[in-house]
Nucleic acid binder design. Structure first.
Length: 797
DNA sequence: CGAGAATAGTTTTTT
DNA sequence: ACTATTCTCG
């Protein structure tokens, strides 16, 4: 048994597996076989040491990671795997609270609020406190509250350390927020952690139970845990002290979600006897990719030195390319994808689509890529995006279901109380809210109070409500009470159907004029399908379990690896994944690094880590692609190449052909969407690499640290060829107004300005009777937009 | 009360 | 550009 588990491991990994006594910190570089290691360690504990699976907890960052880990353990120690506690921190805590939360006054049927539910509560609290939502953004307040919770600060605690007027406001809202949440028997994501912490720190009996039970506690992606998460783990591990944390400071990319990289330091302080193992051998990438990534990350000042190495060969150089705009950028990617996946005379294709991922900073970037995929007939999957459980119809239906187990859930009630229309309008709801607030009860209780049961007879004397409003509220009350009565007598899927029918929601959708009505019904069927997994539980428990799953599992996790789909994915979501071929698009200042991080060195370093994460996903081929200009909120502006590109040594990058390529003369090889969609994978129209290179004149740019990355000639040619390479279809004419007048300068010209110094013209667009010229000034002046007639620009050279 | 129009804000990343 | 919220009118 032992040799089996240990034989595939290198010395360091083996050391980490066998170090089962006492605290352990594993610093695991990218591709260092971390998952394999954790799996092996669990298998070792089970099969060699003989630890019972019920006494091991392993928490991960995503559900997907947990599932994979469980599957891998299963392959080694099959029958034991189901009894392991494996999942995300949030799922782990939800379970603890469901089981023992009553000890701190939590209702057994508590519901879990997601982000948008939370925002509703914040807004409602602000409304009650008469705080102007225009003066204080509810989102900003929510984010402060969330930050406080992640640091284990309750409203009381927060208010004691109020430092600014804004904080004072936040404190008041937070206080109100807690009340509203309690009244709804609801917890949010942060509460799952916060309340678990309080459960363990304030209830000794409960703490004892967990401390006794979990002899081994492991945390994956430790660099992305927040203070609350670490505190929980520390508490649970207090007794046995077998806390094993695995992480890589260089891959910490969630500080905006309150992840606190200082946890690693805290760990070393709290457990001074901790053993530290560093995994530096990379099994994933080529030496070239690894070198480039290492150089990039070494530019960060806040880091622990780490020397990655690999036995993998040097591999091929990194490719860089620039398109004129995001459309052309996408086209470049798609053509390259085509040549990588196309079988040529006698030779089978180099890669399958599933081997390739396109990564980007923000979701919005997926659009141009999707359009290109459609045009080229390339099947693709966008990871994330609009999440299934966040779709309107799904949330509506879920709200009804939540009300069945927990009618005090005010957010859900407000969501569906007038859906479909029942004649319950703003006035009635305001009144209802006031009633609830005055008596400190949930809105459903307020409805019960205000609408006496019709069976009692007598006139509907209904307090503040008009007879009509009271009747409408009574209808709603009956729907919910009625459905509650059904829970015992039918299964979950039947229950969902009953909800759909009795609430009138099915009718509401099918009779709506919404062109997406069918799609919505499909989604609801999908939702019903998901519910089938819970049919073997009695309906009340099944419903609870299902709703909990809906709250805690995003469909990112349920993404399958489909071998014949191109993957489009954000850099954040790509963490933990690997692909033979990776395209990183949008390699521009303002996108990566994101514009919101430019003025803060710490967040700039996080952006660099994000870039590092992306690069290190690649096993064999890495493309760094950018667009010269990019559409943004309707408009469009030029972008400078990402400063991170400057950190990548030139010798690792593919050089453009020494012979100056001829300007692209061909007509663009783009088929109409209709035709290419029906074209089979093997034969869709793609340029050969040579053609690509000549078309994408930016291909192979390398930058030196001293000069700004582009020369005028390069930019001009890119622009020209860019225009020509663009598909003739769907030209958004308004974006490129043709003007009769001819400006005195052109893109690529070098110019001198009296105050800004020398620079290069990046674009020149008609603006009224003048031209708006965008100039990138070399001497740190940055990019400026100037009116040609006003700014005295002197053309040089 | 509800429907449609006007307007404001948004978008970094997600358990 | 796109959506969500607020405003205005029937």
């Amino acid at each position: 048994m032992t040799p089996d588990i240990l034989s595939d491991l290198n010395e360091r990994q083996r050391e980490a597996v066998e170090a089962i006594d006492g605290p352990l910190l594993i610093v695991a570089g990218p591709g260092s076989g971390k998952t394999r290691l954790i799996t092996a360690r669990i298998a070792y504990l089970l099969n060699v040491v003989g630890v019972s699976p019920g006494r091991i907890a392993a928490v991960t960052f995503t559900n997907k990671a947990a599932r994979e880990m469980r599957a891998r353990v299963e392959s080694i120690a099959s029958y034991q795997a189901p009894r392991l506690s494996m999942g995300t921190f949030h799922a782990f805590c939800a379970r603890a609270l469901r089981q023992d939360g009553e000890a701190i006054g939590l209702d057994r049927n508590f519901g879990i609020y997601d982000d948008s539910d939370q925002l509703d509560v914040v807004k409602r609290g602000m409304g009650e406190l008469e705080i102007d939502t225009k003066q204080f953004s509810p989102r900003a307040i929510l984010s402060s509250i969330s930050g406080a919770k992640s640091q284990l600060l309750t409203a009381d605690g927060f208010r004691m350390r109020t430092a600014s007027y804004f904080d004072e406001v936040v404190g008041r809202v937070y206080e109100r927020y807690e009340i509203l949440m309690a009244r709804s028997d609801a917890v949010d994501f942060d509460d799952l952690l916060l309340k678990t912490y309080f459960l363990l720190s304030q209830r000794d009996a409960v703490a004892d139970k967990y401390q006794d039970r979990f002899v081994h506690f492991m945390i994956d992606e430790f660099q992305d845990t927040n203070v609350a998460q670490y505190a929980i783990a520390r508490l649970i591990a207090q007794k046995h002290r077998n806390l094993c944390v695995v992480g890589d400071p260089d891959q910490s990319i969630y500080s905006w979600r309150n992840a606190d990289i200082r946890n690693i330091l805290s760990f070393q302080n709290d457990f001074p006897d901790a053993r530290i193992v560093a995994l530096e051998q990379n099994y994933r990438s080529t030496q070239t990719i690894l070198d480039a990534a290492s150089r990039l990350i070494s530019a960060n000042s806040q880091r622990v030195e780490k020397e990655l190495f690999t036995d993998n060969g040097e591999g091929v150089p990194i490719e860089m390319a620039e398109g004129y705009d995001e459309e052309e950028e996408a086209q470049f990617v798609l053509r390259e994808v085509g040549s990588l996946t196309r079988a040529t005379a006698g030779k089978s294709a180099q890669y399958r689509l599933g081997d390739i991922a396109v990564m980007y900073r923000v979701n919005a970037q997926s659009r141009a890529l999707e359009e290109s995929c459609l045009r080229y007939g390339v099947p693709y999957q966008v990871v994330g995006g609009m999440k299934f459980y966040q779709r309107q119809e799904v949330k509506d239906l879920a709200a009804y279901l939540k009300l069945i187990t927990n009618p005090h859930d005010d957010v859900s009630l407000l969501r569906v109380v007038n859906l479909p229309r029942r004649g319950i309008g703003q006035r009635t709801l305001d009144e209802l809210r006031r009633l609830a607030r005055d008596s400190e009860i949930s809105m459903f209780d307020a409805i019960l109070n205000a609408t006496p049961d019709a069976s009692l007879g007598g006139p509907l004397v209904s307090g503040p409500f008009t007879a009509r409003a009271a009747r409408a509220l009574g209808d709603f009350r009956e729907i919910i009470l009625n459905l509650q009565g059904e829970v015992e007598s039918c299964n979950l899927v039947e229950l969902i159907d009953k909800v759909m029918d009795r609430s009138g929601y099915r009718k509401h959708i099918s009779e709506s004029n919404d062109e997406r009505a069918d799609e919505r019904l499909d989604n609801i069927n999908e939702f019903k399908n998901a519910a089938r997994d819970y049919l073997d539980l009695p309906t009340p428990e099944g419903l609870n379990a299902f709703m909990e799953n809906v709250a805690l599992v995003s469909d990112v996790d349920s993404m399958e690896d489909r071998p014949d789909f191109l993957t489009l994915i954000t850099l954040h979501q790509a963490k933990g994944l690997e692909y033979p071929v990776v395209f990183m698009v949008g390699m521009e200042d303002g996108l990566l690094p994101h514009s919101r991080s430019l003025d803060d060195p710490a967040s700039l370093e996080e952006e660099r880590r994000l870039c590092y994460v992306g690069m290190t996903r690649a096993k064999e081929r890495l493309y760094l692609v950018r667009a010269f200009r990019r559409g943004f909120r309707g408009g469009s502006g030029p972008n400078m190449p990402s400063r991170f590109l400057l950190d990548i040594p030139q010798e690792l990058v593919s050089r453009p052909d020494a012979t100056e390529p001829k300007p692209a003369e061909r007509t663009p090889r783009v088929e109409s969407p209709k035709r290419s969609r029906s074209t089979s994978m093997g034969s869709f129209p793609l340029a050969s690499p040579e053609e690509l290179r000549s078309e994408m004149r930016g291909g192979g740019f390398t930058f030196s640290r001293r000069s700004r990355p582009t020369t005028p000639a390069e930019f001009t040619s890119v622009r020209r060829s860019g225009r020509r390479a663009s598909p003739p279809t769907r030209r958004r004419g308004a974006r490129r107004p043709a003007s009769e007048a001819v400006p005195a300068v052109a893109t690529g010209d070098k110019v001198r300005h009296s105050t800004f110094g020398e620079g290069m013209v990046m674009s020149c667009e008609p603006s009224g009777s003048d031209f708006e010229v965008t100039v990138a000034f070399t001497d740190g002046g940055g990019v400026k937009r100037l009116l040609l007639g006003m700014a005295k620009l002197e053309k040089i050279e």
